[in-house]
Design a protein around this nucleic acid. Sequence first.
DNA 1: TATCTAACGTTATATCATAACAGTCAAGGC
DNA 2: GCCTTGACTGTTATGATATAACGTTAGATA
Lengths: 165, 165
Amino acid sequence: MTPQDHGPGFCCADHSGAANVTAILTEAETRARAQGARLTPVRRRTLEILLQAHGALGAYEVLEKLSTEGFGSQPPVAYRALNFLVDHGLAHRIRRLNAFTACAHPGHDHRAAFLICESCNSVTEADAGAVSAALDQAAQSAGFHLNRATIEAVGQCSACRDSAA
Amino acid sequence: MTPQDHGPGFCCADHSGAANVTAILTEAETRARAQGARLTPVRRRTLEILLQAHGALGAYEVLEKLSTEGFGSQPPVAYRALNFLVDHGLAHRIRRLNAFTACAHPGHDHRAAFLICESCNSVTEADAGAVSAALDQAAQSAGFHLNRATIEAVGQCSACRDSAA
DNA sequence: TATCTAACGTTATATCATAACAGTCAAGGC
DNA sequence: GCCTTGACTGTTATGATATAACGTTAGATA
Ligand SMILES: [Zn+2]
Ligand SMILES: [Zn+2]
Ligand SMILES: [Zn+2]
Ligand SMILES: [Zn+2]
């Protein structure tokens, strides 16, 4: 269940490069402030770890990195930072994987769907506009008031399909 | 996180009544046989427990019931039965709740969405035809080959909305 | 500076899930 | 009928994920 290792020099197509990370962190800082929240060192570093990761990371994976960098070493340290990020739209929880991933489009008040590759464990955040609309419709006809939704697809990403051929 | 208690005599609107349970069990038996699988006593009883439950049940809740009835008392007993049911389309796993629920429409090879009420913990299985189609579309435009998906909505059911008014 | 609160880190514990192995049982070949 | 075989059940043990509770620290506020 560990993410596939990549040799040095290779990086997933839709994986945020280092340049992007800085931009997103700045954006995150701004966004957090606007909500009256503080992007403290642990939180910021946690987001950075997610941004640099291939695929989603489990809380204990994040924790390990944090603890080797002088932050706390106990589970609540990671869970608190991760939950903060999720609550503020900076990360998403992937329930099927018991893991977390940085939001690819912070700032948008979006509804996302996640495409999870069974071969390389990559997680891609897709726009769920249409899916979400259909779900709203289904909920409405059941008389259900929808607050939020989890949409996760499991399959094979295009890169893995190509290499399997 | 325990399902809301109902007084005697009350039963959720969309909760399978006892009559229905028998019918579904028979159907399940048939369906299992057709797949070359056996609906053994633990499996059958597990399905029955799910069918009679209000909302979804955690594996350990199911286990407790099973063990007081003379079945095994250790976690694998429940997980094996539950996984069997899920694999054979007789139950669904609700990831957001770490729980399981009986399939409301066994026999259909359906894609389902689940409507989870935050007030009464009920779980309703909705037809996800349109949602699923939209998701297929989203996956396709990302070049992703979709195998299966989890669609779970959290909100408030109509009964709870009405009683809150 | 004094005060207040959010955030942090810790210990301890709860909750969910699976690996591995031994005994049981029913179906099919001889 | 009897044996082989594989599916099923139950157990022990352990792993993996997540939170409760509490004392301390550090930022904001007045
Ligand atoms: Zn996002
Ligand atoms: Zn892949
Ligand atoms: Zn179903
Ligand atoms: Zn309700």
